[in-house]
Design a protein around this nucleic acid. Structure first.
Lengths: 203, 203, 203, 203
DNA sequence: CATGAATGAGACTTCATTCAT
DNA sequence: CATGAATGAAGTCTCATTCAT
């Protein structure tokens, strides 16, 4: 093997690694910035400023501000969906499924936004990714509830209620230091399953 | 009385009425626009365009775009708070209180955003007004649950859960034509009180 | 008449006049800048800088850089076309027509670009307006030549030749101080009618 | 001779050839791109994209975008000038010279821009190269016309007229498929020599 | 007070050019 | 020399806000 080839290969490896690192850095910065400021208020310069890159470099990695937002949403959905699927297939009963899914979601939240410098304030816009998750949850619910589900049950409201609990309790959790995803998940599951009085009687 | 004075008084009255009308028109337009586009994406010109006023006039009524958003939030909170208070004082038990509050909230939503021309998509940012409502609900919950509340109960999570249900079910409700605040409220109350399986068994 | 009305009317008049003046100023500046730098190299800031207006003001008058270029071209074509039409209808013979048209065109050039501060360098891109003029000239030529025109005559080349002479001689003319549109027109007409040797023999 | 030297020499030869090939590839790509988009709208990446080279490599061959444009112009002028010179020296009379020069120019155009993928739209900016050609033509004209040239003849206008015809008829020619340089040249020569009516009477 | 044009900071994005490998 | 990612100046355009009338 010629040393030139060696160098070229090593070079290619290093470059690829740098590229991957930069891409991840931009994504991470964008995640933070979007979480803190919301999509509209966040500027590309806000994102790139949390990076040691120059403003133009952003556009070597993402075609536009909208594109990185989409990538972020797609990425989140892609990481969430297999979890939801796995839990749905594994779960024998509603409780098991809820517990698995919510625990996974809360851990995901902590990982994703837990280290946000500013306010760890979740402002997720109503994006395609959210619709997808909504439908995913609805489908899982419908399947798992199975015979328990009355024909006239309103699965959209049902799903909305469950997701509402998960999102708001999750947001509360992120406000605490340190966040406790497992405890919060336990709480949310009990609330969803047995209602507020049950939860009030004992945390 | 001189007729001059008469005219002046009549004039003053007319002016005051015009002022009130303009202010209300701007507020209404802003409510719509913020609901449709979100705070950041909405422009002052979007707001003023839904009015028969000129752009400069906006600043005779509100110091800034941020100011009108705050005013809107304060206004919503002010209209909501007495309802919450009244329900809290009247309510004998949790169910009565929840029913009253959520029904009121859903009706409020329909009135406020129901006629929005575009997508009746609620994108409420996490504003001071929301914090206020949160605390209000938490306090009411604490008081009403009274002795049922275990000392270690996590009232923040509890409140978050209840509000999460209300907000998400409310949003779903707004997506339907026509929206049915009373039906949705019934659903939400049952979900909060008895949990998801209870609701699944019969809508 | 109330004095308020008077003032409002006077106001409206002044405003309208200011608007017209600004629009004309921007158009004039753009004409210069485009002539000196070409469409692509010219920036909106270059244009607005030759004005006592602020950069944003440009967009109160023209939707975009492309729009003002189109407006300019349309304006030029609109001013040129009636001249061409009039000459075509009036002219008894080719010589009369050529003389009228070219003289008008050269005077137009001097008016339009004669006072350009920098290099009075005509760089007109091949725009729709030019196509229009080309066809206009071709049609006029065809009509005027009438029976003199052999069936196999190539009117596109013919038109191109005549326009080529006009444009290049016109450009040369603009380089002189002071430009002499009538002399240049006389020259161009003789060249077109009798060819180069005729012109060489006596200016 | 050591084989090492052999290899070095062979290597040097290969390198030199690669260099020349790359330079020519870049020039050819630039010629196309400038012709299609114009100097300003063309980007270095547009140029390099039509090459199998990387963007940085461009700067190993040309110092800047402006430099390659100059090189291109100089190259064109350099290829044109000997033709003009040769024709001038050879030509006995004006007709012979015109015929030779214009035919050569039109063939040059077809070779240079005829295969342009997009619109074969000639947008030649008023560059130094053009000035050079202008002066060259003027000098030739002056010399060839010799005693026919009246003292007060305006050679600048004369040259402009001839070049105007050549350029515009040439451009028309490029719009046709297939372009016919010889026919167009015949037309242009007759037009220059005898004027438009002569050409109108018979193509 | 109403009007609406003017303002200029700042947003997104492109691109000529550099440079480490 | 080739490579291609990084750079940052500069371009087009938007918009909250001001102000003369």
């Amino acid at each position: 093997m010629s040393s030139v080839t060696d160098i070229a290969i090593a070079e290619a490896g290093r470059r690829a690694r740098t590229k991957a690192r930069n891409q991840e850095a931009i994504l991470a910065a964008a995640r933070q910035v979007f979480a803190e400021l919301g999509y509209e208020a966040a500027s590309v310069r806000d994102i790139i400023r949390r990076t040691d890159l120059a403003s133009g470099t952003f556009y070597n990695y993402f075609r536009s501000k909208e594109a990185i937002a989409r990538a972020l949403a797609a990425d989140a959905a892609e990481r969430l969906r297999p979890i939801l699927r796995a839990e749905r297939d594994r779960a024998a009963d509603l409780e098991g499924w809820l517990d698995g899914v919510i625990r996974a979601y809360f851990r995901f939240l902590v990982e994703e936004y837990g280290r946000a410098a500013g306010l760890p304030q979740v402002r997720v816009d109503a994006t395609p990714a959210q619709r997808a998750v909504f439908e995913e949850v609805r489908e899982s619910l419908t399947r798992i509830l199975g015979d328990q589900l009355a024909p006239q049950a309103d699965t959209a409201y049902l799903t909305a209620g469950a997701i509402g609990i998960a999102r708001h309790v999750g947001e509360q959790m992120l406000r605490r230091a340190p966040p406790d995803p497992d405890g919060a998940a336990r709480f949310a599951v009990r609330l969803i399953l047995h209602g507020l009085p049950a939860v009030a009687r004992g945390a």
